[in-house]
Amino acid sequence: MALFLLGCLLFNYPLLSLFAGQGEIFGVPLLYAYVFTVWALLIGLMALVVERRSD
């Protein structure tokens, strides 16, 4: 539940707008990098929570 809310927050205005501008990290556009990083992070956290709970 908390992850859902965190995700909603990270993937929406206004946080998203911070990364919507110019700029890049390691040659990858900032927005693209941000979205995919957060996405990966979220999946990782979900896996962590779920796997720990099912133990």
Binding site: M1, F4, L31, V35, W39, L42, I43
Partner: peptide, 15 residues
């Protein structure tokens, strides 16, 4: 990246 919400939504829902 306007194509992405279609996949971010399910990710959030999965939570």
């Amino acid at each position: 990246i306007g194509f992405l919400p279609i996949y971010l939504g399910p990710t959030l829902m999965a939570a």
